[in-house]
Each structure stands twice: as C-alpha cells, then as structure tokens.
C-alpha cells in the first residue's frame, strides 16, 4: 500500500511513536508534515502546509485533539484516529473517521489511511 504524493500530517505527542509513524509514512512514499505534539502546532501546520491526509492521536497528554479533528473534517481532509483510548470518541462531538487501535502494526495503519484517502 502506497501513499505516493500524499502530504500526511502526523499529530502525536508520544515521541517514539511519532518517530515511528514518520518513518512508516515516509516509507509508504508520502511526505510527512509534523509531527505535531499538540493542538496549537497541528492547527498552525494546517494553516501553513499542504496537507492531504492525517493521522490523529486522540489524547495529546495535556489536551485532546478534538479541535484538530473538527478542522480536518471542515477542510475535508481524510484522516484516521490512532488511539489507545477509543472510548473518548463516543461523544458525538467527534467527527466520524476510521479508528486504528494502539498499538498497531505500521502496515495496518498505512492501509487504513490509504483506504480513508481512497474514499
């Protein structure tokens, strides 16, 4: 599964996971935007960069990524949630998007993102 020509925003506060996602996304042929560890940085990147898809961690430690998800939905940018706390997404405030449970194999994550983009 390839993500050629895609500009993928990575929003992840966990340093090692972010590093790993970066490698995985880059290996799938896409350009990495970020990673952003918080909402403020993520929104700044959305304003400044070309972004065609996104991988979104739900719990960013001190905050949740709800504002980023709503912005992605508003900009019609396909994205997937990558989280260990999927229960948080039960609230209707969260835009609908595919959810990949942590921990995930990089290949499964890339496949889910490619599917989201294809739709």
């Amino acid at each position: 599964m390839r993500l050629d020509h895609q500009h993928v925003l990575i929003v992840e506060d966990e340093f090692f996971i972010a590093l790993d996602l970066e490698d995985s996304v880059r290996e799938a042929g896409a350009n990495v935007v970020g990673p952003a560890a918080n909402v403020k940085d993520a929104l700044a990147l959305l304003d400044a960069e070309t972004i065609t898809a996104a991988i979104l961690d739900v719990n960013l430690g001190r905050e949740l990524s709800l504002a980023v998800a709503q912005r992605l939905e508003q900009d019609k940018i396909p994205f997937i949630y990558h989280s260990g706390q999927t229960a948080l997404l039960g609230s209707p405030a969260w835009p609908k998007a595919p959810v990949v449970n942590k921990p995930a194999m990089p290949i499964a994550l890339i496949a889910a993102l490619a599917e989201a983009i294809r739709k």
Binding site: E14, F16, L19
Partner: peptide, 17 residues
C-alpha cells in the same frame, strides 16, 4: 489501560527505531 497500550506502542516504536 491507557499507559499499557501507549507503552506497547512506544516500545514497538522504540524497537523499530
């Protein structure tokens, strides 16, 4: 629950790195 999942994700990421 959160941490263990997160840790597993961190550890697998760390292993790959």
């Amino acid at each position: 629950s959160h941490r263990s999942k997160n840790q597993l994700a961190v550890i697998s990421a760390m292993a790959r790195q």
